[in-house]
């Protein structure tokens, strides 16, 4: 008795999830997909209900006809509209432990890396603005976004100053056009995916002409993702390919964006 109580208590503490029984009144054909790619097919025309043992993660779909599935106190009418029922995969012991560890505050979520500060203040919604230092010395700005996209620079009145389509996804924007641009738009096949103002920022400089590498590193240290294209261009010009590749991934994520 004591043993049983202890083991019940232990199971309650460990949260071991066991399988569940569902009752299936089937009129047609149903397919049960179990973990590990195992599938079973059932075919009935009414009659006595089937009792199935489902494990967490198992999925039962009605392929033809309709079915009434009872799980605990819940009823699901499976048919054309909703064909499938799935038993929610329960989190593993390890997942629960790590989550509890995070809840208690011992474990931390993985910290973000460089350019992690969200640059939302001047952009539209969550999209970062394109920042350029006023002392930007290169003739072109390189902006890597996903291939097959179109980039446009718009002036104060909304007129198009520059437009480019690049199959490789790396755009080259002339600095002269950027000087007068107010907005930048990146459009995919489905419409505009990213739009943000172009902002020229006066960064304090010590008046000494610096090499592209130092300029790039300085912008990198600003940690503002809006400066990332400028930093990327400087680093490419300085031949720092490895460092540039790291930033490139972040630019693609931030500027190739999902929604404007």
């Amino acid at each position: 008795m004591t043993h049983r109580r202890i083991s019940v208590a232990l199971m309650a503490v460990l949260g071991l999830a066991l399988g569940a029984q569902v009752k299936l009144e089937l009129n047609g054909k149903a397919r049960l997909e179990r973990k590990g790619g195992v599938a079973q097919t059932y075919e009935r025309a009414g009659g006595s209900p089937l009792t199935l043992d489902l494990q967490p993660g198992d999925r039962l779909c009605v392929e033809r006809g309709e079915a009434r599935l009872t799980y605990g106190v819940r009823v699901y009418n499976l048919g054309a509209a909703t064909a499938c029922f799935q038993l929610a995969p329960s989190p593993s012991l390890w997942q629960r432990l790590t989550e509890a560890c995070k809840d208690v505050g011992i474990c931390k979520d993985e910290a973000a890396r460089a350019f992690a500060k969200p640059a939302t203040s001047r952009g539209n919604g969550d999209a970062p603005a394109l920042y350029l230092p006023t002392d930007y010395a290169l003739p072109e700005l390189r902006l890597p976004v996903a291939g097959g996209r179109r980039v446009r620079l718009l002036g104060a009145g909304g007129e198009e100053l520059f437009s480019q389509e690049a199959a490789t996804g790396v755009f080259t924007l002339p600095t002269s056009a950027l000087r007068f641009a107010q907005r930048l738009e990146v459009a995919g096949p489905g419409g505009v995916v990213y739009a943000a103002p172009v902002v020229w920022v006066a960064l304090e400089a010590d008046g000494i002409a610096q090499k592209p590498r130092e300029q790039g590193l300085r912008l990198l240290l600003s940690e503002q993702v809006g400066f990332a294209p400028a930093a990327y261009s400087y680093l490419l010009a300085a031949g720092e390919r490895e460092l540039a590749a790291v930033i490139e991934a972040q630019i693609r994520a931030a500027f190739g964006g999902s929604a404007p």
Binding site: G72, R74, V75, Y76, L87, P89
Partner: peptide, 28 residues
């Protein structure tokens, strides 16, 4: 859980059901 997915509640004896499903007869 999302639609068509269901699992155990941590509290024993508790069932959670959305009003729309309840009106459709989602409770035994």
């Amino acid at each position: 859980f999302g639609s068509g997915v269901q699992g155990e509640q941590l509290w024993k004896g508790l069932a959670v059901i959305s009003a729309a499903e309840f009106l459709r007869g989602g409770l035994v």
